[in-house]
């Protein structure tokens, strides 16, 4: 789209210069009319013109998503409202002047469609620029802040998790160490008992606990 703007400005420049030339010729042809007719025929022409001979059609062009109106001029050849003006004198000049002015209006129409396109594109570019600025300066920083916050939160959670794991593994190690020590102690006690049995061998089968006996089971603590 930004490629279209310099192109349009160049064409506007060309059209404006052309308009200057054409309008000058047209104004001069009007002078010729007033010389030939020798009076003011403006009113008469205004009154006798009923239908537009020179017409403009509007189309829409799509330039990268922007709808640009485009004016097209055409002449309705059948309409010749003041063809008889200046019948007595000056008719040729009147017709010539009309043709010159038709060309001038053609240039104006061309210029009009270029200028409209330019204005619309300008507006669109401004809107886009505003959006770009808004995104760049408001939305992006805001999102970045959010991202930062989320990252820090996540880090926090990570750290907590790590700490927890460390704690758990410490505890586990301690438990294992305690269990080991107990086993060791038990084994040592068993060995001691073995030693004693060897000393007094006729010891009845080790005291298998009398499940049905009177003594109670120790409470199982989970």
């Amino acid at each position: 789209m930004s490629g279209a703007v310099p192109e349009i400005t160049r064409r506007i420049d060309e059209a404006k210069q052309k308009m200057g030339r054409v309008m000058q010729i047209a104004a001069f042809s009007l002078a010729e009319v007033s010389y030939a007719v020798g009076g003011d025929i403006g009113y008469q022409i205004q009154e006798s013109a009923k239908q537009a001979r020179f017409r403009v059609r509007a189309k829409q062009d799509n330039v990268s998503g922007v709808l640009l109106p485009h004016f097209e001029s055409y002449t309705e050849e059948g309409i010749n409202d003041f063809g008889l003006t200046g019948l007595g004198k000056g008719g040729q000049q009147v017709q010539r002047s009309r043709e010159t002015y038709a060309r001038a209006v053609e240039t104006l129409v061309e210029l009009a469609s270029l200028q409209t396109a330019f204005v619309i594109l300008d507006e669109v570019i401004k809107v886009v620029n505003r959006r770009v600025n808004a995104i760049e300066h408001v939305i992006i920083p805001r999102t970045e802040n959010t991202i930062k916050y989320i990252m820090s939160e996540l880090d926090e959670v990570d750290r907590e998790e790590f700490y927890r794991l460390k704690k758990v593994s410490n505890k586990k190690q301690r438990d294992i160490a305690a269990a080991d020590a107990e086993m060791e102690a038990r084994r040592a006690a068993a060995q001691e008992k073995e030693g004693q049995k060897a000393l007094e061998p006729e010891k009845e089968a080790p005291d298998a606990p009398d499940v049905l006996g009177e003594q109670e089971d120790a409470d199982v603590i989970f």
Binding site: G83, L84, Q92
Partner: peptide, 12 residues
């Protein structure tokens, strides 16, 4: 003469 010349191409 003028009327003749100017009437060419008109509905006259």
């Amino acid at each position: 003469i003028n009327i003749t010349l100017n009437s060419f191409g008109t509905e006259l």
